[in-house]
Structure formats: C-alpha cells, structure tokens
Write a protein that binds this DNA or RNA. Structure first.
Length: 585
RNA sequence: GGUCCCAUAGCUCAGCAGGAUAGAGCGCAGGAUUCCUAAUCCUGAGGCCGAUGGUUCGAAUCCAUCUGGGAUCACCA
C-alpha cells in the first residue's frame, strides 16, 4: 500500500462525484492534481493542490472549491481531519487506525515494501563504467560506476526490466599501444633489458605479469614474428588480462554488469556490423560525402580540409555533422558507436541510459542525434553526466598526474575506506554537482559521515531485537508475527516514524523516473535521523522505549515498527549497494 | 568563440515534474547519559535563493539576457 497513491485515488474518486465537476467533466484534467506530504508537518499528513489547479477551468475560486472538496473528503473514515489553508491547499490528517494498518502492511511486505510498477516492465539498458581496457580503473571511474549501478538497481526496484551493460573499448589505436607495451614486457620477461619505457607506451607495472604469461606460453616464438603477426596474439592476451583486472576492481566496489559488449566484435569480419549500421543510416538519408568547417575558436595547427563520409547529425539536433569514415577509409570511434546503438535498439530496449563523466559532455548531442536518426525518433536515450570527483586528504587536494603514473586507483580507494563508504558518498550528491571526497571524513564514525549514520541506524534496529530477546528469553523472534499488535502503536512520535516510512515508495518512484539515485541516499539519511531521534525519546521517557519488559504485547508491537524501519533501511541500502550491518565496530 | 554543468546560511549541500513561514549537516551558543550502543539526541542564533527582466493566482524552481566558477571542443579513443 502506497499512502500517496492511495489518497490520490481517493481524492480523484471524490472529485468525480462532485456536481460542480460532473457538469464540466470534459473540460477538466486531473493530471496536475498532486497529492504529497505537506512541507510543514504541522499542516497535516497529506496535502493536495486539487482546488488550486481545478478552480480556473471550473470558473470558481480555489478557496470555495477547496471547501466543497473538503466536505466530500470528511466522509472518509480513514481521514480524521480536513482543513483548507493558504491559497487553497487541502490538508488531510489521517486516523491512527490508518497508520496502524499501513504499518501492518509494511511489516508483511518486508524488504519488498516500496517496490513499484512505474517502470511497467519496460526494458531499460544502463550502460556505465565502460573504462578503456588499458589499465586498472582509477578513482575517476568510481562515481560513474556507483551512480550507474545504483540507478540500475533503483530502476529494477521501480519495475523496469534492467540490463547493466559495459561497453569495452577494445578496438582502436590505444589497444595497439597497449599490445606494444605488453610486448615490451614480454621481451623483458625473456631476459632482455628494456630500460626505461619509451614515451607513448603504457609504463605501468601491471603489465609485467601479462608479459610473463606470454613468455611462459609462447617462449621466444613471438619475438621471431613480424609485428603484423604477433600483434593480434598479444592484443587478445592483453585485453583479456585487463578486463580480468577491471572485473576484479568492479567486484571490489560491488559493481556487476550483465553484459560486456565488445567494440572489437563490431569491427570483426571486415567491420561487417559497422558497415551495416552505416548502410542503415545511409538508407534513411543521414549520410553524405563532404567536408567539415574548421573547428571554431583556436584552429589546430595541423588542420586540413579533407573529404570524409559524414553523418548529417545537424538535421537531428547536433551542432555539427560527424565523421563516420575517415579520409583514409578507416572507421571513426563514432561509427562503432552507431553500430553499438543500433545493436541496443534492435535488442528492443525502451530506454537506453548512458552514464558518462563530465569530460564526455561534448559527446551528448551526437549520441542523442544518432538515437533519433537510427530509431526514427522512437528510442529514448538519456545521458547522465557525472561531474568530477576531487580527492582530499586531510583537507589538502590530492594531486594526480597520469604522466608520472601518480594516479590513485579505484582499488586503492576501496581498500582504504571500504566499499560501503565509497558507494554511499558517491551517491550522497546530485550527480550533476562536483563532489569532494575526503579520505578522513568518509571513514569517520560520527554523524558527519552519512554512511556511518545510516548504517548505525540499521545496527541499532538489530540491537533492539537483541535487547528484546534478553528481556523476553522465551520469545521466539524468528517466527513472531510482528504485525499482530500494530494497533497498539499510537504514540505521536511512533506515528510520525510510520509517516516517514510511508514516503519510501514515493521516493523510489520519483528517484527512478528522474534518474536521480541521490534522492534515495538523502531519504535514507532522513529516515535514519527520524529513527535516532525517536530512539532518544526513550532516554527522556522510559515509556517510549521499544522494549518494555512489563508489557510484552506492546514490546512486540514496537518491534514491528523497528522491523519496518530496518526493512526500509536494508532495502534502500541494498539499492545503493551498501551493506546493512547488524552491529557496528 | 560554441556547447554542457553549476551558483541557496560562515562552510558543504538538499529542496521532490511552480505552491503555504526556504531545509539538513558542519561550525557557533546552550542543554540531555543510574536507562535498548551519548558512535546519539534536544534547543537557539544565522538566508534579498548570483543579477535583471518575463510567463501566472503564485517562481529558489520555468523562459530570456547578463555576471562569476567548472568541464569540453578533433579524422582521438
């Protein structure tokens, strides 16, 4: 049962039978009628703008209409009070009985509570990470990895049929560079002195074992081949090794993809699939031979005007047409992307989401253009740009430079602060906002640290159950019907905690539809705060404690409430990919 | 120069498809522990929502212009 959906129905049903509406039913649209929690709790539990939205088409004023609607709503036994306030808000207060039944329903649903069907089983593809397989993942990949993963989890929970996908950029010149770098390590493994790694090759030590493995497998045989012959062999080995490493890194971060899609597969067999995709675009009239105007602003020194095969993306919303086939006849990266998108589209996804770093912002328009052209405007493609993460250690920014190899890897961060801290902090900010990540703060065990604060609330819930077991040793908590005495829950603070839990389904839906997983993280913090606050009420007034050894039924009823809180925390934390611990250390 | 993101309390940020007196944490000032983890809680001070116009019953939120910060610009991947 979703409180706000429930009352939206009730309010709309009440509206339908009002005379003033029946007379002009065809002229009014309930689409803008919102049913939501009021900004200020003192106003009530549920508020609606129905009167303000509908007054104009009905030719009346909001206050007068609100009074009429209020009268109709007062007939609902679950509503204890209806008032009209401000410019025409209708504020509704719910009966204690309604809250109790809501709690029962939450307890019965457990961690399924909050699941939604807004996704309507639509097929959604979330592509994220897609780091080049040329080395270990660095910290810059973290945010996209976590945001993409959490968004995918969230959308699945909200009723989408979600595929998590990783596009492996295993074609192109950077892979040749990788293979040559590995080949050098191979020669090294055979005993050659290679000296300093030449610039232009990847210097990282992580390539040493790959060279050794090649030396073991092939001995000196590769060394005697021409580059043309050894390159594909070394490439295969290198990509394999890099992807294994990347998968391990992702695993450390609790990120798991369903599909790893290889760019090379698109180039295979004489670039069959890329050609097919370009043919498809050509057939639809989006391709021509021509030249591009020089880039605006600073003109590159080596700029030359040459004829290429171009995608007329300006006709579908882009700023400039995009090359598909270079002047030397080879395919651009973007050409592979056309083929890749077409593949996704042909696989039948209703929504395709690309989670990219802010440094790829310039790529968005051409992706959107390509989606329009390939799908004839039918595909829904959205790009989620994650702004950059700045690392801090003791308040000082951590300097990184790729050239010196002095960059922080994803693994280092996860090993140092733990995956939960990394994940939650990456979500505890709108992704369109830059993020400061301070090593000291995220490991701190205090309320400054939202990860800790939320996990602690869950651990506290578990602690209450342990205490209950102590107070009632014969209580069989495992098989206890925690919903049985929900009707004993009637303290003001308890009802407010239920009200906070009642927001959960709404948050899930809104966050999933808006594709903003940070909203969930903020909600969890908010819920934890409500729980900690309620807990402390027990310090002031022993009657409010969850466990009361003189009143078994009341204790069981309150265990039900605690269980509901724990379930929502657990369910929400699971979506963020963060653990819900039973105790803190 | 073009495009994208951002601007809300001293600091770091929320603000839910425009709505009632703009919220939280930190920091600051005060308070709560014979009692389920004080690893927490409670109270208070603190804001011309970057600027100017526009849309309307109503704007931090939508539109335009401007200012200031960040990212980006390719036959690269």
């Amino acid at each position: 049962m979703n409180l706000f959906a429930d009352f939206e129905n009730r309010i709309k049903n009440a509206l339908e039978v009002l005379d003033i509406i029946k007379e002009k039913r065809s002229e009014v649209d309930f689409g803008r009628v919102a049913v939501e929690p009021p900004r200020d709790q003192s106003h009530g539990d549920v508020a609606t703008n129905a009167a303000m939205v509908l007054a104009k088409p009905l030719g009346t004023n909001p206050r007068a209409l609100a009074d009429i609607i209020a009268v109709a709503l007062r007939g609902d036994p679950d509503i204890s009070e209806v008032s009209v306030a401000g410019p025409g808000f209708i504020n509704i207060r719910l009966s204690t009985g309604y809250w109790q039944r809501l709690l029962e329903s939450m307890i019965e649903q457990g961690t399924s509570y909050g699941r939604s069907t807004v996704g309507a089983s639509k097929k959604a593809n979330v592509e994220y990470v897609s780091a080049n397989p040329t080395g270990p993942m660095h910290v810059g990949h973290c945010r996209g990895a976590v945001v993409g993963d959490a968004l995918a989890n969230l959308m699945a929970f909200a009723g989408y049929d979600v595929t998590k996908e990783y596009y492996i950029n295993d074609a192109g010149s950077q892979i040749d560079v990788l293979a040559r770098s590995v080949f050098l390590r191979y020669r090294e493994a055979l005993g050659e002195t290679i000296g300093e790694i030449p610039s232009g090759l990847y210097p990282g030590d992580y390539l040493v074992p790959v060279g050794q493995a090649l030396a073991e497998e092939y001995g000196p045989r590769l060394h005697n081949m021409s580059e043309e012959d050894w390159l594909p062999i070394v490439k295969d080995k290198a990509i394999d090794a890099m992807m294994t490493m990347i998968r391990e890194d992702l695993d450390a971060l609790n990120v798991h993809h369903d599909i790893f899609f290889s760019e090379r597969a698109l180039h295979a067999g004489g670039a069959q699939r890329i050609r097919a995709a370009i043919n498809d675009l050509t057939f639809k009239g989006h391709v021509y031979r021509g030249t591009l105007p020089p880039p605006k602003g600073q003109l590159p020194e080596d700029w030359e005007d040459r004829e290429q095969t171009l995608f007329r993306s300006t006709e579908v919303g882009d700023d400039i047409d995009r090359p598909l086939i270079k002047s030397d006849g080879s395919y651009t990266y973007f050409a592979a992307d056309v083929a890749y998108f077409k593949d996704k589209f042909d696989r039948g996804y209703d929504e395709m989401i690309y989670v990219l770093g802010a440094d790829h912002g310039g790529y968005v328009k051409r992706l959107e253009a390509l989606a329009r052209a390939v799908s004839g405007g039918k595909a829904k493609l959205t790009v989620l740009l994650c702004q950059l993460v700045k690392l801090f250690r003791n308040g000082e920014p951590v300097k990184m430079s790729k050239r010196s190899g002095n960059f922080v890897t994803l693994r280092e961060v996860v090993d140092e602060v733990g995956r939960d801290a990394v994940r939650f902090m990456m979500l505890y900010r709108k992704s369109s906002e830059p993020l400061d990540f301070d090593f000291a703060k995220v490991t701190e065990q205090s309320k400054d640290n939202p990860v800790f604060y939320v996990q602690y609330a869950h651990a506290r819930c578990a602690s209450v159950f342990r205490q209950a077991q102590k107070a009632f040793p014969d209580l069989d908590i495992e098989s206890l019907d925690l919903a049985a005495h929900a009707n004993l829950i009637c303290e003001e603070n308890e009802l407010r905690l239920i009200a906070k839990l009642a927001e959960y389904p709404r948050i899930v839906e809104a966050a999933a539809v808006a594709q903003e997983p940070h909203r969930l993280a903020f909600y969890l913090y908010d819920l934890a705060s409500s729980f900690h606050g309620h807990w402390s009420k027990g310090s002031e007034n022993a009657d409010l404690r969850f466990v009361n050894d003189k009143n078994r039924q009341l204790s069981v009823a309150r265990l039900g409430l605690v269980h509901a809180v724990a379930s929502v925390l657990k369910s929400g934390l699971a979506i963020t990919g963060t653990a819900a611990p039973e105790e803190m250390r």
